[in-house]
Computed example of a mutant assay.
Amino acid sequence: MPEVTSPLSSQNAVLAFFDVDNTLMRGASVYYLGKEAWRRGIIGWRDIARFAWHQFRFISVGENHKHMANARERALALIGGHSEKTLFALAEQIYERDILPNLWPETVALTQEHLAKGHEVWLITATPQLVAQVIAARLGLTGALGTRVEAKDGVLTGELDGHVLHGDEKATVAAELAERRGADLAECWAYSDSGNDIPLLSAVGNSVAVNADAKLRNHAKTMGWQILPLNRAGLTEARRRVKRQAKTVRKRGR
């Protein structure tokens, strides 16, 4: 499953990385994938009950590595044996029905601020790659980096293609992308709500804790990172910072 990329390339690119769950949107995107699979009869009541419990915990107390891992394992299992076209159709449907109404307008506005500066804006998330691609495409972003699911002859096996894009893996993938795009990480930006993304935030020169959990909030205070509350005042200050401090990139055709 290829990355979604912009038709333009740039010299001295600046990348802005945005986490998805509880950063760009309220809740866990993988839950909505399970919910749509239930609507279509792919999974049963017991499975959707587990997904619902995970969503409640995630919204209430934030990301827990064990619970997230269990949810992703169930998500992989439920899509095993189905075609990539089926997963794409699920992703399209959940965007319209579930993800769009739960997007944080403040964070979405920041993605557009970066685009206006000529930056590449990439979603970076543990959610399945195809789901992340749909969100990025609908929001007009540069592309998406997500967890890849193995497929053979267009049919999903239910196994990972590589690693879950989580924790240190996010930082590694972000650094690899920055190198390919000719970007200096010191000029790049990253936004996340989770302490599990401290490696990603530490890898860039401009780190923003959005709707942060306790672990990330404490670390951000220690490091002097910007802490962004999801309200009008916080958004105004964050946009001013991007306008004031972020490098403007002029793009040229390939």
Rank of each mutant, 00 (worst) to 15 (best):
S202P: 00
R148Y: 13
N70E: 13
L177C: 02
E3S: 02
K85C: 12
D153Y: 02
P199H: 07
P2F: 00
S194L: 00
A71N: 02
S10T: 12
A49P: 01
A246L: 04
A89V: 00
Q55H: 11
V131I: 15
S60I: 01
Y31L: 06
R252Y: 12
R250D: 14
N64M: 01
D21R: 01
V4M: 07
I42P: 00
T5Q: 12
P229E: 05
R241I: 10
K152W: 06
A246M: 12
E169S: 05
R181C: 06
E120P: 04
T222I: 04
E96F: 09
A238T: 04
N22R: 03
L115F: 10
T248S: 15
A37G: 04
N196T: 13
E92N: 07
H82N: 09
L145P: 00
R50A: 13
S9D: 14
A116S: 15
R250H: 14
N211E: 12
A174L: 05
F51D: 03
V121K: 04
R239C: 13
E237T: 03
T147D: 10
E237K: 04
L145K: 09
L76Q: 04
D47H: 10
S83D: 15
G143N: 09
R46T: 12
G182V: 06
D19R: 07
D19H: 07
T236L: 14
E63T: 05
R46E: 13
F51Y: 08
I43M: 09
E120A: 10
